[in-house]
Amino acid sequence: MQLRQKDLLGLEYLDKEEINLILETARPFKDLFTRSVKKVPPLRGKTVVLLFYEPSTRTRTSFELAAKRLSADVLNISASTSSVAKGESLIDTAKTLEAMKADFVVIRHSMAGAPHILASKIGASIINAGDGTHEHPTQGLLDMFTIWERKGKLSGLKVAIVGDILHSRVARSNIWGLNKMGAKVYVIGPATLIPPRIEDMGVKVYYDLDDIIGELDVINVLRIQMERQKENLFPSLREYNEIFGITEERLKRAKEDLLVMHPGPMNRGIEISSSVADSSRSAITEQVTNGVAVRMAVLYLLAGGDSRGVRK
């Protein structure tokens, strides 16, 4: 069993077996974190470039740690402090990295499809670390890993994604992945933040969380993206909190073992209350640990090469 592609561009392009392979490979990598020496040698001599056109702390450091724990060399390039600021095009930047013999390029870009362009232009393995509002596959994978670890399965679970679905690449990757793994996916939020025809992706839409909360096994709370709220898509943060905020009060009607997740960074007191975020139901800090393990699994598996193996 192996990944059938050189790149990880989105969960849309993986099948159930490949997702399973990544999740199963992440488990032994997570076990490494309990050792005193957390570093293992399989990517020794490989170069991983982190090319970030959008700010990120969590995802970037998680990839950096994952690559370093596999003994790869890591280069950090952020758009604001590189030739990109001088007007270099994405493809020219990519060609430069290829000329430097990068084996992996982890890219975050505000335009959907930017990783796809890179993948078609250079031989290095491209990993999408978030492209516009399109996909964020490693977040989807780490969310599924977290559910799988806590619940022992994915198939048949009722998973709700709550909040700003419209702007969320995390939501889209979760929907692709969870559907393939046999979970039932619900999206819940204000009508203005639910994209039209989202039902076509195989999800059920609810506009009132309280209608469905009693049936859910997992709730994945999305961040209200302040930087994208200039369009006035809902009246006020306070009203949002009233209707969609995940609070102790609201969870009284939920299943005892409801799992609460959040991709971070959290706006405490808006989409999630502090007491829920810090409760035993929450897997939010666990998600961060799992993120490193899942990204190690992805790097490790992609390094295996395949028929298109331009790299070597």
């Binding site: 399989p42 490790y300 598996l301 390094a303």
Partner: peptide, 16 residues
């Protein structure tokens, strides 16, 4: 598995 010396030469990654 993670300490093998043939990661570059085998067809695909072995299960860890």
């Amino acid at each position: 598995t993670l300490y093998r010396d043939d990661v570059d030469s085998i067809a695909h990654q072995p299960m860890v």
